[in-house]
Design a protein around this nucleic acid. Structure first.
Length: 483
RNA sequence: CGGGACGUAGCUCAGUUUGGUAGAGUGCCAGUUUUGGGAACUGGAUGCCGCAGGUUCGAGUCCUGUCGUCCCGACCA
């Protein structure tokens, strides 16, 4: 049932993944028509095929947000300087990378405004107006928008100056409730990555030095790319009542005392698309998880000029669409081979070939993008087979990423262990004990090149000494190079 | 923000050393033959040589500036 033969590179325009991973990445985003550069550094045109992936991400995440009780809102894109200045840690963290608006038309503004780098200030201002009583709590809001951060070095999807994201902002009567929200949303992200992006992630907490500006604690999900570098795929922050105090948000509780509420925020961005590319892609191009692929199955008619082939192809297209698949028929006059390569480049999970011989046999050929396995599928069971193959492919992608994490996670007890593991096996996650001092965090990065990624929720007692200073340590940290 | 490379047709690039009519491959368009892994032939169209100054009789080529892209570091979703 399955044959195949080649893993050879069929698309000569793409740099080989193992030759130059960075170049491979930028080739993919261009050749698969995800983006085009614009004339402003770090601001990209997201093309229809790239945007369709984002729309699928939005749709699936938005469903999960609604299912956990959240509502969508929209905040202004400008923040007056005085508003940004209210929470001192927050402004200190973001001030170096905000873009400022100083004029309206030709008139200088009385107060300059920044283009939002994130919207905590705006949500806080709003909450201070609408939260009065415990009866007004909680508020579980989310916003889909773009934000601007004036990054120095930019890369498509991974780090751009304007990027699309969602930011959830919630406000609660108690700390316990806010902490539970922070953890819940981290789990929503991790589940989404695993189930819909087929990309397992590590859940954990950022170190003090690495947490969000203004947060009490920052949780994160860390994904591992094919080349062994980590990607922060999402964050969820617990703010305590720090913002509430800075922005004077208060409510009267059941006991008739005035209190400060507790807040959270959480976000994922179009960076996830970069994660999909680097976690699943190969030398022939993108490999898209079925849940977010704009086209899940492409029909390639073979010998389409022959009587009955296009009619049959259209019939199959109709059946697949009716069954709820995102299907496409390419009846252009490009050669079949050209189409094979084109849709592999674009990462379409399944390719259905239908030609005169197949019609004769009342079957078609379905080829998986990830393994290139060919299956001869009886037309009578097309829908069921397609469904099963998509599920198998999704599992296959997940298992492959999980195996990559497994083989690239190194347990280390000394600094030499770390350097050795990386030089022998390549980049990856390093698991090592840490004494909680920022000095050691800095030292490890300076000597070995791996920075702290997160304190994973799943702890292991590798040893009782800090990998760096040798002092007693009870925390195991994940370290790695990051995008 | 430091170090390096680069910007010429839709794409990949040659031409820059030594200034002198703008090039190739591929793609695109038309037609014919093809069609189970990026087809063949014939004909055709396509350029503010990134942008702005300067030097020169003359600039893709030399000089200055600027914008953008990539790589390596430092900082960040």
């Amino acid at each position: 049932m399955a044959n195949n033969n080649n893993n050879k590179k069929l698309v000569s325009e793409i740099t080989s993944r193992d030759t130059d991973f960075a170049k491979w990445y930028t080739d993919i985003v261009k050749k698969a028509e995800l983006i085009e550069y614009s004339s402003v550094k770090g601001c990209l045109v997201i093309r229809p095929y790239g945007y369709a992936i984002w729309e699928n991400i939005q749709r699936l995440l938005d469903r999960r947000f609604k299912d956990t009780g959240h509502e969508n809102v929209y905040m202004p894109m400008f923040i007056p300087e005085s508003l940004l200045d209210k929470e001192k840690d927050h402004v200190a963290g973001f001030a170096p990378e905000v873009a400022w608006v100083t004029h309206g038309g030709s008139e200088p503004l009385a107060e300059r405004m920044c283009v939002r780098p994130t919207s905590e200030c705006l949500f806080c201002e709003h909450y201070s107006n609408v939260v009065k009583s415990y009866r007004d709590l909680p508020k579980l809001y989310n916003q889909w928008c773009s934000v601007v951060r004036w990054e120095k070095t930019t890369r498509p999807f991974l780090r751009s100056r304007e990027f699309l994201w969602q930011e959830g902002h919630t406000i609660h009567a108690t700390a316990e409730e806010a902490v539970a929200e922070t953890e819940q949303m981290l789990n929503v992200y991790a589940d989404f990555c695993a189930e819909d992006l087929n990309m397992p992630v590590i859940k954990g907490k950022k170190t003090e030095s690495d947490k969000f500006a203004g947060a009490v604690s920052t949780y994160c999900i860390e994904a591992l790319m094919h080349d062994g570098q980590a990607l922060q795929a999402g964050t969820s922050h617990y703010f305590g009542d720090g913002f509430a105090k800075a922005f004077d948000i208060t409510f009267t509780d059941k006991d008739n005392t005035i209190k400060h509420p507790h807040q959270t925020s959480w976000g994922v961005s179009t960076r996830l698309i970069g994660g999909i590319i680097m976690a699943h892609g190969d030398d022939s191009g993108l490999v898209l998880p079925p849940a977010v692929a704009p086209v899940q199955i492409v029909i390639i008619p073979v010998a389409q000029h022959k009587e009955g082939v296009l009619d049959k192809a259209n019939e199959l297209l109709g059946r697949l669409k009716t069954a709820g698949f995102r299907a496409k028929l390419d009846d252009s006059d490009n050669s079949a081979g050209w189409k094979f390569a084109e849709y592999e480049m674009k990462g379409v999970p399944l390719r259905l070939e239908i030609g005169p011989k197949d019609i004769e046999a009342n079957q078609c050929v379905i080829v998986r993008r990830d393994t290139r396995e060919k299956a001869f599928v009886a037309l009578d069971s097309l829908e069921a087979s397609t469904s099963e193959l998509l599920a198998q492919l999704a599992r296959g992608l997940f298992d492959k990423v999980a195996a990559n994490i497994e083989s690239r996670t190194y347990t280390c007890r000394t600094m030499d262990d770390i350097s050795l593991a990386i030089s022998e096996n390549g980049d990856g996650f390093v698991k090592a004990m840490w004494c909680s001092s920022e000095a050691c965090e800095t030292q490890v990065k300076a000597t070995t090149g791996v920075g702290s990624r997160c304190i994973p929720f799943e702890q292991e007692q590798i040893s009782d000494k800090c990998v760096c200073c040798g002092e007693p340590a009870s925390i195991m940290l994940y370290w790695g190079k990051a995008y």
